[in-house]
Computed example of a mutant assay.
Amino acid sequence: MSFLHPTLTPINARRLQNFKANRRGYLSFWIFMILFGLSLFAEFIANDKPIIVSYKGEILVPVLVDYPEEKFLGELGFLAVTDYRSEEIVSEIDANGWMIWPPIRYSYQTPNSNIPKSAPTAPWWLMAEDEVCAGYAQGLADPACRLGNLNWLGTDDQARDVLARVIYGFRISVLFGLSLTLLSAVVGVAAGAVQGYFGGTIDLLMQRFIEIWSSMPVLYILMIMAAILPSGFFVLLGILLLFSWTGFVGIVRAEFLRARNFEYVRAARALGVGNGTIMWRHVLPNAMVATLTFLPFILSGSISTLTSLDFLGFGLPPGSPSLGELVGQAKENLQAPWLGFTAFFTLSFMLSLLIFVGEAVRDAFDPRKTFQ
């Protein structure tokens, strides 16, 4: 069978073939992975520091190392971290070397102090020709007005570049969603496995606990806890983990309840194999099939939850590159429609890709297609 990959079992090769057969999901997977991979190197794409600087024969990497201003201006430099956008630094480096800048010369927190109007400002391609370089020397030939210094998606209400914040916000949203999904899967799968395998009193008590836990007003509790505890990535991750793990319990519990009385499980018990080994090596692989089909959908839900909390002001710390904060800015600045359009299209495109990938994964693990 030529379609089989040499390192895959026949069933997994069939699943891979089914995944690729869903063209929309397969293409969405690669688009999402390319965008996520690029966002991991956001500092090399959007930054207010050069990637490489050659100064007096020495090669410097400001994107990775913070150099004091004294290194370039001598005793006249007093800043602990060099501002490479200042005229003095630019002139000094140009006179004694060269710089390679990222395509976008703004980080997610870099304000544009040369905008022609009060923030938020429109994308440069929507401005009048005489406003594009306002605040700079006129003409695109001037270094200060090159494409890297222009705001392709405009600025927010604090004059920060929207495109840079979208790139960084995409990265932190996906990393947060992946972390929450994987941790929730570990806790939820473990709880569901214990319930389904042992059954009886353990299953009854844990099921009543989960029913009570799931009936609590999660959003209000999250808002209260986020307001009390210090804001931060890991604090918010821990708070959301308290309630997100229950989504995995039901499907894993059902698989373990179904499989615990199979002949191969009974045979393993008769041979003296321990419960932990049976659960890990014999039952869990079958239960993970159903779990894997839910992962892309739960990932999209985790990203939506983070966006919602950021929109309400109970998410990441102020100033963090957040898509939810961009939605909030769009609500507060209706005269700046580019903020709303950017937030809408970014979130809808990202979540649509994940849903399409989830549909392809579901088709890949569908037993009716795998064993036909």
Rank of each mutant, 00 (worst) to 15 (best):
T7E: 04
L8E: 03
P10G: 10
A13Y: 00
R14E: 07
R15L: 01
G25P: 14
G37P: 09
A42N: 10
N47K: 12
N47Q: 11
Y55M: 05
L64H: 07
D66P: 14
G77Y: 03
T82M: 10
I89H: 04
I89E: 06
I104R: 13
Y108H: 11
T110R: 11
I115C: 07
A122R: 14
V132A: 06
C133D: 02
L140A: 14
C145Q: 03
T155S: 15
D157C: 07
I172Y: 04
G177A: 09
L178W: 01
S179A: 15
L180W: 02
A190W: 10
A191K: 01
Q195D: 06
G196F: 05
Y197E: 02
I202E: 00
I210L: 13
P217H: 02
L219M: 14
I221G: 11
I228A: 01
F233L: 01
I251A: 13
R253I: 01
E255A: 12
A259T: 10
N261S: 05
N261T: 04
A267N: 05
G276M: 03
M279C: 05
W280R: 12
R281V: 06
A287E: 00
A287V: 04
L292A: 10
F294H: 13
L306E: 05
L309Y: 08
L312P: 14
P321R: 04
G328I: 00
K331Y: 14
K331T: 08
P337G: 12
L339K: 08
G340C: 06
F344L: 15
L347I: 13
S348G: 04
F349A: 11
F349V: 05
L354C: 08
V357W: 00
E359S: 09
E359L: 12
D366E: 12
T370L: 13
F371D: 09
Q372A: 12
